[in-house]
Computed example of a mutant assay.
Amino acid sequence: MDIGTIHSIWTVLLFVCFIGIVLWAYSKRQKPRFEEAANLIFADEEKDSATREKDRSKEA
């Protein structure tokens, strides 16, 4: 086995891993999980605004 064959096998393995990751990332089963993760930053804003409204009602 020469170095060219080893590089070819390595390239094919990496390509198969890449295709596997792409299929996993774009599968319909993962979509709800990724959408929830994408909206996590907005959950903090909702909590902050709810806390601010609660503080304002206490002051009044």
Score class of each variant (00 low, 15 high):
15 F>K: 10
15 F>P: 03
15 F>S: 10
15 F>E: 13
15 F>N: 04
15 F>H: 12
16 V>T: 03
16 V>K: 03
16 V>W: 03
16 V>L: 07
17 C>L: 15
17 C>P: 09
18 F>M: 05
18 F>C: 07
18 F>G: 06
19 I>N: 02
19 I>C: 01
19 I>Y: 10
19 I>Q: 07
20 G>H: 02
20 G>D: 02
20 G>S: 00
20 G>E: 04
21 I>Y: 12
21 I>F: 13
21 I>T: 13
22 V>A: 05
22 V>W: 04
23 L>Y: 09
23 L>G: 02
23 L>A: 11
23 L>P: 01
24 W>F: 15
24 W>P: 11
24 W>I: 14
25 A>K: 03
26 Y>V: 04
26 Y>P: 03
26 Y>K: 04
26 Y>E: 00
26 Y>R: 07
26 Y>D: 04
27 S>R: 01
27 S>A: 06
27 S>W: 01
27 S>K: 04
27 S>T: 01
28 K>G: 03
28 K>T: 10
28 K>E: 11
29 R>S: 07
29 R>E: 09
29 R>W: 10
29 R>Q: 12
30 Q>G: 00
30 Q>H: 03
30 Q>N: 03
31 K>Q: 09
31 K>A: 07
31 K>F: 02
31 K>I: 12
32 P>W: 00
32 P>K: 01
32 P>N: 02
33 R>K: 12
33 R>Y: 03
33 R>T: 08
33 R>C: 05
33 R>P: 00
33 R>H: 12
33 R>N: 08
33 R>M: 04
34 F>E: 05
34 F>V: 10
34 F>Y: 10
34 F>P: 04
34 F>R: 10
34 F>I: 09
35 E>C: 06
35 E>P: 01
35 E>F: 05
36 E>K: 06
36 E>I: 02
36 E>V: 00
36 E>Y: 03
37 A>M: 11
37 A>I: 13
37 A>E: 02
38 A>T: 01
38 A>I: 06
38 A>D: 05
38 A>C: 00
38 A>N: 06
38 A>M: 06
38 A>L: 07
39 N>Y: 13
39 N>Q: 14
39 N>C: 11
39 N>P: 07
39 N>F: 08
40 L>C: 10
40 L>F: 12
40 L>E: 11
41 I>W: 13
41 I>R: 09
41 I>Y: 11
41 I>C: 09
41 I>L: 11
41 I>N: 15
41 I>H: 14
42 F>N: 02
42 F>T: 00
42 F>M: 01
43 A>M: 13
43 A>L: 15
43 A>K: 11
44 D>N: 12
44 D>M: 15
44 D>G: 12
44 D>R: 08
45 E>F: 14
45 E>T: 14
45 E>M: 14
45 E>N: 13
46 E>A: 11
46 E>C: 07
46 E>W: 09
46 E>Q: 07
46 E>L: 05
47 K>G: 12
47 K>F: 13
47 K>H: 13
48 D>H: 02
48 D>C: 05
48 D>R: 08
48 D>Y: 01
48 D>Q: 05
49 S>V: 14
49 S>A: 14
